[in-house]
């Protein structure tokens, strides 16, 4: 009795974890029963969450052991505080020790939790350092981005450090969020209420077009699971195809990224809207209405 697919965007983090991994395989670390909550929020008499808005643990993806980190966008916009950040860092360091097939990082976050200011900022840099350690150990980190909060602020940077980004059309990646840009630079610079514009600049399709996201999938947990499974199961195969195998050559990865950035710099500075880019690429003016499958097909045809 299912209608559409099970929406990734609308699911809570716990449901995502459950549906992404092999049934019943997940075991959580520092789960909500331990009630490790934020001391900063408590000091401000703000509501706390028993898992501080992030779920970490281990499980199986198509029978391969993986470490799972999933932010809950519905608690404080998935923002990173001290405990939240420590849980992510701890899970990453555990990966260095246990050597799972991959780390799945389900990002759904506006960035640093403002209530925790410096502690949150420090947490972000600790996450980055731990992430490098995981990559150094030859374990790919796969970002899954499709929640309502997207991946912004510090978590936007973390996302771009990952080996692979699987994103839905509804997913977004950015540094400053649209509202922040509008507040600082004015509505002429960026109208945050123009939802169409926001998605044409930060959304999954434009990020995939620019090569910043690796794969565009439907807003469907099963589609995210299938895409992630492909990377873990035959990971060398998939990653080799793209020349991005961090387990064998991190220099190569960096060079590829450098090349990509070089290509970005050559883009016309006048392009301030995804639609302009798509039109120039010959994708027409209906890109937003293409299904991810149609879009991927058209884009791959252009890329090859």
């Amino acid at each position: 009795m299912r209608g559409l697919a099970q929406s990734y965007r609308e699911a809570l983090a716990r449901l995502r974890v459950q549906a992404l991994l092999d049934p019943g395989s997940f075991s959580e670390w520092v789960g909500p029963t331990q009630r490790v909550t934020s001391p900063h929020l408590a000091a401000l008499e703000a509501p706390v969450s028993f898992d501080d808005g992030v779920i970490v643990g281990q499980g199986l993806l198509h029978a391969h052991p993986v470490i799972m980190i999933a932010q809950e966008g519905q608690f404080n916009g998935g923002a990173v505080g001290e405990v939240h950040g420590a849980k992510i860092r701890g899970a990453l360091l555990r990966a260095v020790r246990d050597k799972p097939g991959a780390v799945l990082l389900c990002i759904d976050s506006g960035g640093v939790r403002l209530h925790e200011a410096n502690a949150g900022l420090i947490a972000i840099s600790e996450i980055m350092r731990a992430l490098f350690a995981v990559q150094e150990a030859g374990i790919p980190v796969i970002a899954l981005i499709g929640g309502a909060c997207g991946a912004f602020g510090g978590m936007g940077i973390v996302a771009r450090l990952c080996d692979v980004i699987i994103i839905s059309e509804e997913g977004r990646i950015g540094l400053s969020g649209p509202e922040v840009i509008e507040t600082v630079k004015g509505v002429e610079e960026f109208d945050s209420r123009d939802r169409a514009l926001v998605w044409r600049i930060t959304g999954g399709k434009i990020r995939r077009t620019l090569g910043e996201a690796t794969l565009l999938v439907d807003d469907d947990i099963a589609a995210f699971r299938a895409a992630a499974g492909e990377m873990v199961g035959a990971r060398s195969l998939f990653l080799k195809k793209r020349g991005l195998n961090p387990t064998t050559s991190s220099l190569q990865t960096l060079q590829a990224a450098q090349q990509q950035l070089g290509a970005r710099a050559e883009l016309d500075a006048e392009i301030r809207d995804g639609q302009v880019l798509w039109s120039r690429m010959g994708l027409g003016d209906q890109v937003s209405l293409m299904s991810p499958e149609q879009f991927n097909r058209r884009l791959e045809a252009l890329e090859s």
Partner: peptide, 29 residues
């Protein structure tokens, strides 16, 4: 909400085969 045959205006546009043209205030594309 997974039971809904459309969860967004865009789903409705897709269901209509692109025939439904929603007014601007309902678009996010």
């Amino acid at each position: 909400r997974d039971l809904l045959a459309a969860r967004s205006i865009k789903d409705l546009v897709r269901a209509s085969g692109g025939l439904y043209q929603p007014p601007k205030q309902f678009r996010n594309w």
